[in-house]
Amino acid sequence: MTVLSIQNLTAGYANQPVLHDVSFDVEAESVFALIGPNGHGKTTLLRSLSGIIRPRAGSMVFDGERIDKLSVHRRVELGLIHIPQGDQLFGEMSIEENLLMGAYLRNDQSAVRVSLEEVYAFFPRLGERRSQLANSLSGGERRMAGIGRGLMADGKFMMIDEPSLGLAPLLIEQIYESLQTLSRSGRTFLIIEENPVRIAEIADKLALMDGGRIVWSGPPEELRSEKRLSQTYFGGH
């Protein structure tokens, strides 16, 4: 079943389109990965999906509902959760407050408490440092807090922008193990990565972006034999 369907999306800043005519579908409870070098529109795509920027043309249907015109908070209410690049934590707040901000639109306080404990159980480091300011965390802890804050929204669709960005290999491994576990939790994931290697191991489907267009998409098994991959990254045409 398709949970998110994007048709002919064009978006950008001022007079410079960054995305050109992008279309793809995401299956429910799958992991969909968008790969490609930086500066080719992946982040712009997520920002259009969460409503931070307004696309110029095209349509976005989430769970059977057109979301193009909805405000950012309405999309969060529908369960479309965007975990931004570089974590974007609230630096002067404690970890716990950051996580509670993730649950901002939820009103059932006891359920929020349960989610909080779940996140702490999932990332024990966050539990140990729950009253520390987000500013004082290490890179890996920040990433966990960012993902944890996204989980707190209890949304069914998680969009994660570069979960491995700026982390040491060992930490990337940890984060990916967490993502692998989460991918079996009944949620749908749309993950952006620059490096296709690790994400290909957990993704059900991948799409390669180049120059604001999707130039290839398919299952991970086909990725290795795909010529366009090296063309996109190394510019050989």
Partner: peptide
Amino acid sequence: TKLGRAIRATAMNLDAARLMGVR
């Protein structure tokens, strides 16, 4: 309070606050 948290979040990081669903 939740209201206060939303105010502080908006002050610290506008886009992130919006992504949390803060109007």
